[in-house]
């Protein structure tokens, strides 16, 4: 055995290995080639076994050649390995292609009802101005619902609140959220900024714009100098928040429990003020009633009208929701047809 023979063997081994590597077709075959050539019992090792027969001065030279061959085979394995991996991955990815235009897997088809959602929207606006939420009973006593709000039993204004009575003497289904004013005043001291959402009831036949059950939000603010100017400022903010920038109108109204009383209009959300059937051609839509809390009501609330004054307002939640969402019929709300509800996503 001499150096030339051995290095010739090594070069042949290299050439054979490189060819086999280049033509190997899958990672398993490549793995086998690695073992065949570079493994502990592989061909390279076998060739080097002959090194012992060489003269000592040739051994380093053969070692260098063997290294060279080993590195070349390793490099070829790596290159081919990367190539094959790329091919395999490409095949897998190609086989995994989907029609990306297919619809997705549906999640979370729940919806929230527009009534509580509108209450939330209202509470959010007034919450920014320090109004906190209270709730009162729906089965209310006659005194709080009427007399304490300055509506005497035979007051002609009682016609404004057709009432459902219950079989508990002295009780009725509250006709408005206004009795909550009394309850808040009796339970807390000024400064008061309260918001009272809730369900109300009236003896009223059902049609597209009336129902015997409906929802209101009442507001109450009482302090030493709270005036109509504060009311107007707040209501303007409220209207802008809920209906966008549009004109508002503050005009006289009538409620027994406020004096002076106010009706609050916004420019028609349908026609923008030009006049259309939705606004009876006036260009305006009334969204709430308000006024300065009547001294009789303040006193029933335990508040001295000489020291404190304030305002109250009340609005129909359905009315606000109708205008915001263009709901055509009040009956939609309590009917709960999912074709209606699921539009509120």
């Amino acid at each position: 055995m001499d150096f030339e023979t051995l290095s010739g063997d090594l070069h042949r081994l290299r050439d054979r290995a490189l060819e086999e590597i280049a033509t190997s077709s899958d990672p398993a075959a490549l793995e086998a080639l690695q073992i065949q050539y570079l493994g502990k019992k592989g061909d390279l090792t076998a060739v080097l076994r002959g090194i012992g027969a060489l003269p000592p001065e040739d051994r380093p030279r053969v070692g260098a050649v063997a290294n060279e061959v080993g590195e070349a085979v390793k490099a070829a394995l790596a290159t081919r390995g990367a190539e094959l991996h790329g091919q395999v991955q490409a095949r897998r990815l190609a086989s995994e292609a989907v029609d990306v235009t297919l619809p997705g897997r549906t999640v979370g088809r729940g919806t929230l009802h527009p009534i509580p959602e509108t209450v939330e929207a209202i509470a959010e606006v007034f919450g920014q101005f320090g109004f906190v939420v209270y709730e009162g009973p729906e089965v209310e006593d006659d005194l709080t619902n009427f007399q304490m709000l300055n509506i005497a039993p035979d007051h002609p204004a009682r016609d404004l609140w057709d009432t459902l009575y219950v079989d508990i003497p002295g009780y009725l289904l509250r006709t408005h959220t206004s009795p909550g004013q009394i309850r808040v005043m009796q339970s807390t001291r000024p400064p008061i900024r309260a918001l009272l959402p809730g369900r109300c009831f009236r003896y009223e036949a059902v049609d597209a714009s009336h129902g015997f059950e409906f929802f209101q939000v009442e507001g109450l603010m009482v302090d030493e100098g709270t005036s109509m100017a504060d009311l107007k400022g707040l209501l303007d903010e409220f209207a802008h928040a809920l209906f966008g920038p549009r004109k508002t109108r503050f005009r006289p109204g009538y409620y027994p429990f406020t004096e002076p009383s106010v009706a609050f209009d916004v420019q028609c959300v349908v026609c923008g003020g030009a006049g259309c059937p939705a606004c009876s051609r006036t260009g305006w839509m009334t969204i709430l009633g308000a006024g300065m809390v009547h001294p009789v009501v303040l006193q029933y609330g335990g508040i001295d009208p000489e020291k404190y004054q304030g305002f109250a307002f009340g609005m129909g939640v359905e009315r606000i929701a109708n205008l915001r969402h263009a709901v055509p019929d009040l009956r939609y709300y309590l009917e709960n047809d999912l074709r209606f509800l699921e539009q509120f996503r």
Partner: peptide, 11 residues
């Protein structure tokens, strides 16, 4: 009627 936001004490 002038319009302004309340500037009194908060509850």
């Amino acid at each position: 009627t002038p319009a302004h936001l309340p500037d009194t004490l908060m509850p």
